[in-house]
Design a protein around this nucleic acid. Structure first.
Lengths: 132, 132
DNA sequence: GTCGTTGCAAACGGTTTGCACCGTC
DNA sequence: GACGGTGCAAACCGTTTGCAACGAC
């Protein structure tokens, strides 16, 4: 819950972190800009980008580089997979256990040194299903 | 091996398709531009983008929207997973069988209608391993 | 007081698009 | 001959960066 000691904690950085941790959605930098601006009307978009990058680098939050044009951020750093709705673009957490060690399988069947993996499901969210 | 009938086959479109099918790498639009320009020096980047988009939409090639800033294209439309090297950015096919039906697991444990999934491994390719 | 951080605006990189001409069907 | 495709260049959009002022430590 506490941050790394080396991070200087400015008002902007703190609000960005609080806002990101307050939601379970996976906001884009632009979403975050809107959220933060409600509390700090003069914050700049550059500051939001810079801080999200710094927080992600120090492991306090997660940058999820899922399909689509925009990067998204996640206050939950536990590793977990994601669900993306093709219709509305919404991204949810997928709390699933595949029961297999995918990285071990990949390590055995390829000549790469496997560092990590990303598993993403594309589908239709419950909110969009009625529409289609 | 043959294309959909509805596609008008211009020289540019044909060369783009041939060049993409001739490689097993996963070129970006810019890579494709270079490859095509060797045979059609006056081709424009816009044409390459337009045709890759059209070919992907009609299912003749695959647009792989893997992590990173640039989109990549794949002449192999069979579904398969990918390996990305963090050091050089190279993308290879991962010919692996996970042995489990990931989409079925996701369907059972989430409230999304699952359409497809994407599995990507991040690691270090054999070419880069000696360097690090 | 130092030095990392901010707001601003301009730059950037990848991709898309408007337009007039061209070539396939 | 019609109409989709092309080359060109400008526009676009998400993101990054240079800079001078600012504020946390």
């Amino acid at each position: 819950m506490l941050e790394d000691t080396s991070l200087r904690m400015t008002k902007q950085r703190q609000v960005i972190l609080e806002e990101l941790r307050a939601v379970t959605s996976h906001p884009t930098a632009d979403d975050m800009y809107d959220m933060v601006r409600r509390r700090l009307p003069n914050v700049s978009l550059g500051t939001v980008y810079r801080n999200l990058e710094i927080l992600a680098e120090s492991g306090v939050v997660q940058k999820i580089d899922i399909g689509g044009t925009k990067k998204r951020f996640d206050g939950n750093v536990d590793l977990h997979h994601h669900l993306r709705c093709t219709l509305c673009g919404r991204v949810d957490d997928a709390h699933i256990d595949t029961g297999v060690d995918l990285e071990a399988i990949a390590a055995m069947n390829t000549d790469y040194t496997i560092l990590r993996h990303r598993l993403e499901f594309i589908g239709i969210c419950p909110g969009c299903r009625p529409k289609q």
